[in-house]
Design a binder for these strands. Sequence first.
DNA 1: ATAATTATTGGTAACGTTTCCAATAATTTA
DNA 2: TAAATTATTGGAAACGTTACCAATAATTAT
Lengths: 339, 339
Amino acid sequence: MEQITIKDVAKACGVGVSTVSRAINDHPNINEETKELVLKKIKELGYVPNNSARNLKRSEGKAIAVLVKGMTNPFFNVMIKIMEEDIISRGYTMVLQHVDPSEDEADVALELTKEKRLCGIIFLGGIVTRRGSKLGLLNVPYVVSTIGAPLKGVHEEDYSSVAVDDEREGEKATRYLLNKGYKRIAIFAGAKDDTSVGMLRLAGYRKALEEAGIPVDEDLIMYLPKDNEEYSYYTGYSSAKRLIEEGTVFDAVFAIADVMAVGACRAFLETGRKIPKDVAVMGFDGIDLTRFYLPSITTVAQPIKQMAIETSRLLFEVIDGKEHRHLVFDAEIVERETT
Amino acid sequence: MEQITIKDVAKACGVGVSTVSRAINDHPNINEETKELVLKKIKELGYVPNNSARNLKRSEGKAIAVLVKGMTNPFFNVMIKIMEEDIISRGYTMVLQHVDPSEDEADVALELTKEKRLCGIIFLGGIVTRRGSKLGLLNVPYVVSTIGAPLKGVHEEDYSSVAVDDEREGEKATRYLLNKGYKRIAIFAGAKDDTSVGMLRLAGYRKALEEAGIPVDEDLIMYLPKDNEEYSYYTGYSSAKRLIEEGTVFDAVFAIADVMAVGACRAFLETGRKIPKDVAVMGFDGIDLTRFYLPSITTVAQPIKQMAIETSRLLFEVIDGKEHRHLVFDAEIVERETT
DNA sequence: ATAATTATTGGTAACGTTTCCAATAATTTA
DNA sequence: TAAATTATTGGAAACGTTACCAATAATTAT
């Protein structure tokens, strides 16, 4: 199957290659009639521009890379799907790449831009490289989504972001539990030395307790172990198990990700605890499953779809020459059966 | 940030561009010493080959497209992640693209190959185009994963596949329920005129009943509505609701996807039914959630990871010039609390 | 009617690779 | 020692685009 090139089209139309090129690219300097003719012929011949050649010439690929840390989380799936739709509909390709929790996403991104000629990057989750990272070396626009704190070592005008105010939402969640009358609230946070959302939500937790005049019991804070930092059913489950084993008294759990909340529920119910009578459980994210799990799980629901839409929109804004922006969304506490 | 080209490297080394090219591509006709020198300089200068140029010349991009139908299903997520690892580790790019249930994936694929110069395609789920499809026009190797029946209108030697024997597994599942003593087994199948896994599993269901001498009650077969054919919590939930409303007597449900089983459980528990006392629930796929859901869900567990590994392996085999193959895996019934 | 502008056009040089081909240097064989 | 082979090399032509430039045709202004 031979490829049909712009030359074939030109020959078929009896015009020059540049005319065909102009027709394809909506160039102003072309007669409407010739353009129509060319476009018709193109359809007839089934011609599709060769992207490699185009990218080579334009020295810019029509591709957006999406780097995800923690792909297991269904939260990201929904986002990816929505962003993909937008990316494709604008004629771009989405290159998806996971990055291991132990990897530096700035390194991965840097490598990628060199070989791939991307015209934008979306970071989903993670960004452990916050402290003075190599992100500044990136010469393509990027937006970080679901990260939380502003990136250190990078100017605010040099990237876009969309997120909820994780600290405030963590505080809100904790206060909600406090208002419900829970006194010994455990929190399932992220990895200890991490800088991502988990730690921010934890900070909010501390703040809420402090404001309520309740001293923070460090035994109630369950960090994720170094060897498995991913938010998953499993880490939620084992955190709960660990909490039980350690014998710490608790009457509620705030898991900083829904998937962990699910795992926690399983552990509690398995060990004969009633939810929410013996222990309340609260999640964070607002994935579908919290609605369908039984008991349905109270959660801090992020406006996932909207955030996804804005994430890609923000990126394309910058590609189109506009300024970088930082969007902060409000999350909403959805009360369900676990509290 | 100017791009460093092969010319710069050549100049820096005092050699010709072709020598540099040879060094990069492990060409045999090059002196070991010069090669080392070049490689050292390359690292020094931070040179990375330009993919577009390379693809243009080789007229083959080092990219694998993964087309997924039904991205919401976590089953595919796990597969995607595993395949991606393999794809990246071999130096290829993974281009992920969802295809809407209403779209023809062969069309999408065809379009993609023309503009992207892919060197392989992986189809995940779907392939409604089974009847005499345009798949034959594809001039890149492809493998269909999780599809089930052999593709019609395409020679077996022209593509690879990995799957379980969906009909047999459906039969196995149904027989398992029958052996457990359930008599009125409802099945949540796919869309009625679909040709994908759902219908095969349904065929197995029919076969099992027939063999047991039980006439099939068509009222027990819940097809997915035309406007929402995706396997999801929601479609499982609403199928269950519909079944209840219709007043059909049933004592077990076989959902052809775990996510649907989860939704069904929710609906049954919500309406005061006990699982498995009033109704047994059985899923298919073997996603993590079935373990962590409460009650944990009996399922026909596919060897997801292995299937994912083999899927990309099969593709690269063909890329490396080997023959196409068809792999059939065995699924395993994992008995849990819902039966 | 002529000059000046404007609207279209085709030709061609890049873009950064790979790969064939011929050229040279190094080695082996006769 | 000359001839034949082999191991390395550099040069240059592609790959399919885009975009600049000059050329032509059509229009307007003088």
